[in-house]
């Protein structure tokens, strides 16, 4: 356990090296919020409520989406693991008594912490500028949903990346597609309950809404019950099991072919 604390501490230091990169990445986040904000403002210019959301609720939703996506989707492992497997850096870890995925999960956590700190700053700023009426009522379920979301996002990403074991040359496009698709259905861009009922309930059978939408809905006081939490946990369990299997198989291929 201690070794992972050290990983966290070192990654934390390392993050301050690429300040410009980091600032640009944060800027991208804010920009996305502003863009969606103006999109919604233009929609609300002709009507006062859209699918039951008032303008204020929508803005609150988007601001919190910024916060939650900082927590859930900031995940440098998604950008690095594939490359490290295909260029053989993974070897450095396979000869050492450390778990490679745990190592990256720890580094992700370190990145999440710094992103949250910044997100709080940005949100305060946006709050001061737009002065939306924010109503939040987080509870224990919201918290557990958030934890589950962080883990599901990590597992999903690594599961998609595992393809690199079998196709080391061309994974980037694949990863990108997956990530964009994921973002669409997570609730980052719009509240998923705007969708037609059938679409919304179908989505519940995928892991995506558990990443942003449900934790967020729970925080802004929408009725999100234990059943949803349970489903989130089930997804976490399924993905954990799948990743364990797929990764072990991948490592076997890796060790046979010596990428």
């Amino acid at each position: 356990m201690r070794k992972y604390f050290t990983v966290f501490a070192i990654d934390w230091q390392n993050q301050f090296i690429y300040r410009l990169n980091f600032i640009l990445w944060r800027f991208r986040n804010v920009l996305r919020v502003l863009m969606t904000y103006y999109l919604w403002i233009s929609i609300f210019s002709s009507q006062t409520s859209v699918f039951g959301y008032t303008k204020e609720q929508m803005i609150a939703y988007l601001l919190l989406a910024l916060f939650i996506s900082s927590l859930v989707t900031s995940s440098p492992s998604n950008d690095n693991v594939g490359g490290e497997v295909s260029n053989g850096t993974l070897n450095n870890f396979l000869v050492k008594p450390i778990g490679y995925l745990r190592y990256w999960f720890t580094r992700d956590l370190s990145s999440k912490l710094i992103n949250i700190i910044f997100a709080v700053g940005e949100i305060s700023l946006l709050y001061i500028i737009f002065r939306p009426s924010l109503y939040v009522s987080p509870n224990l379920i919201s918290l557990l949903l958030l934890v589950s979301a962080v883990i599901i996002y990590f597992l999903l990403g690594k599961l998609a990346i595992s393809i690199v074991f079998w196709a080391p040359e061309n994974t980037w496009g694949f990863m990108f597609t997956i990530l964009v698709l994921m973002e669409m259905f997570t609730g980052l861009i719009f509240p998923l309950d705007l969708l037609p009922h059938w679409a919304f309930s179908t989505l519940q059978f995928t892991p995506f809404p558990y990443l942003i939408y449900f934790p967020l809905a729970s925080i802004i006081g929408k009725p999100v019950d234990l059943r949803i939490l349970l489903q989130s946990f089930v997804w976490m369990g399924i993905l954990y099991y799948l990743l364990k299997k797929v990764w072990a198989k991948g490592l076997k291929t890796y060790s046979a072919s010596g990428i």
């Binding site: 201690r2 990983v7 070192i10 230091q13 090296i17 008594p97």
Partner: peptide, 18 residues
């Protein structure tokens, strides 16, 4: 670790190898 002094990597290995 490319961007940090080598001593940091030593410390990490110390922990990894307990």
């Amino acid at each position: 670790w490319w961007d940090l002094p080598a001593i940091e990597s030593f410390i990490l290995n110390k922990e990894i190898y307990e």
